[in-house]
Design a binder for these strands. Sequence first.
RNA 1: GGGCCGAUAGCUCAGUCGGUAGAGCAACUGGCUUUUAACCAGUGGGUCGCAGGUUCGAGUCCUGCUCGGCUCACCA
Length: 646
Amino acid sequence: MVVSHDQESLSGWEGGLAPALPHHLFALFYIALYNQRFTAGAQNLSIPFIEENDQTRARQEHLEALRALVGNAYPNKFERSQIVEMGKEDTITAIVEKFRAFEPKAPEGERPPAEAIELANQQLSDKSVRIAGRIATPPRVMGKAAFVHLSDGVMRLQIYVKRTDVKGVSNDAGGGEVDGWELFNLLDHGDFIGVEGYLFITKTGELSVHVRTLQFLAKALLPLPDKMHGINDPEIRQRQRYADLIAGSLKLDREEDELTPREVFERRSKIISEMRRFLEDHGYVEVETPMLTSKATGAAARPFETYHNALGIPLYARIAPELYLKRLLVGGFEKVYELNRNFRNEGIDRTHNPEFTMLEFYWAYADVNQMMDFCEAMLRATVFTALGHTHVKYGDLDIDFSQPFERLTMKEAVIRWWRIRFQYCPSVAEVNDQWFEDGKRITFLAYFLKLLGLESLDLVIEAAFLGDERRKKLNEEVSFSWDRTKTYQGKTDERAQQPSFVAEDLAYLFGELAEPNLVQPTFITDFPKAISPLSKASPADPAVAERFELFIAGMECANGFSELNDPREQYERFNDQMTQRERGDDEAMVMDEDYIRALSYGMPPAAGVGIGIDRFVMLLTNRQSIRDVILFPHLRPERRINPSEG
RNA sequence: GGGCCGAUAGCUCAGUCGGUAGAGCAACUGGCUUUUAACCAGUGGGUCGCAGGUUCGAGUCCUGCUCGGCUCACCA
């Protein structure tokens, strides 16, 4: 008679019949019912794309048994105590930070003296807590008592569960009592539970909670990663960041200075909030400009294209907020910033993700030099507040933010690193500093470098350490490329007649020779105007733009300039870009008529800058890949989890 | 997009010359009332990324594909 009833009608009985029965009998009765359902083949409990194996099956069975024992397996809340600070719920971290001072000191591997533990326990004298967290270790059960650690994602706190002391809490209305030990034995590594009990220090000297009542909160149906090794597979870590975060918080074997994924992203958050605070302290207003635009402008990049159904027009994900922010300068804002995502439809590698976070800010009446000072102050302050110091270890590099950032013009940088690179190559000794003032010679040197090839270029820098034999051979190679370049001089001279080509070649020389060597924060200034279509020319040299880029650890981290505010000149620069576009450069900018119209109302002189937040976070968290500082970086879709792809 | 490397149990990884698929952790069963990666005894767990090919025989050799890593080109 009983078995023929469904669960709903059983629940209905609970008010009347259940109290008459001892609870554990009632629970057994539920288990019998569920077993009946299983053997009857009512197997609709599994989720199709969640893999079934011995471990998931065991967890599923535990879940069903828990339902039988406590009713609702996914209760809606658990109220935690507030003994650390009134008005604030006690997290595990808060409890540990407040009470771990009671742990008696003992030499590594030894137990503290019993008297010290006794004393600590008297001082703790029945401090009751109600805390919740994820079961962070496989339970260590010793017959009639057990130890388990709970984690709140940051810290872990041990709980002690004694068979004779623990009471279980039903999750059904009324929250009656169930067998606590039976409940405990249905728990798996990874489940969420809430416990009530009192603090004490164990014989080994660890702060723990002696559990009086135990409540089930949520099930981990999937097995957790190895407690010692965590997850090493970068694909799982990036695709399933939740698993990465869990594994990082539960992993036992960790280096002293190793950041958990959680700590990486908390630091990211801190860096961003410090930058916001710094800007707001200096009078900047945060604004939000369109991410979906009908024109992709403000930078040299290919956009993502989409389509608006109702309007029937193409739209582009923005590649930069720049032109919108400058429209706001026209409108009267003197200091604005935007901190948000840009989207660029280009290659993906360890420093590029299709969507990335950019901070852009604009300062009316200031020029590029004032902006460099401001940027430097902001970054130094951010590093200090985020890390507590200004010396950053990035891989093998030591980066010092406390010293004034070096400032070099692009030409100075090229000259310096050319000299260092080719100091042991007599065949190119005729190159002197004057060469870099001459467009023809710049195109010549760029051609030479391309001809020489990257492998030889890398060897050249080691020339000092090479044996005589190899150095001789290398010099022959350099000499050969040099002579060969001379036979193409007619072509390079012709190329030099086009200023934008000279500009590109100078930038190429800079990129190959100088950029990788800019380890300490360094401002590179005086960019060729031809590759800076939105920036103002220098008053001293009309061919040079008042523009800078900041390099740290060989990475470009910021890009700023005195903003071009002459609408006529901006119109012509756009036209030049259009010409380049017609020649096949699909990253050249498009004409933005509305922007020209805005400038025509008058824009004050201003400086602006963009800072690549992801790269800056990489530096401050010692990550070598941008995918490690973006919670959910772009990856190809996973085929096996998506049934529609078969 | 090109080149190089990789994919084996839930996780971390071995797998020799082409000859029966392995370990640790995790899981399951039993024991253990203050443990510390708890311990002791036992048991189960595999589409060796996918699809072909060579071979008497393929985790292993060959080809194609998928996904990932590094790197080059492009870009911030």
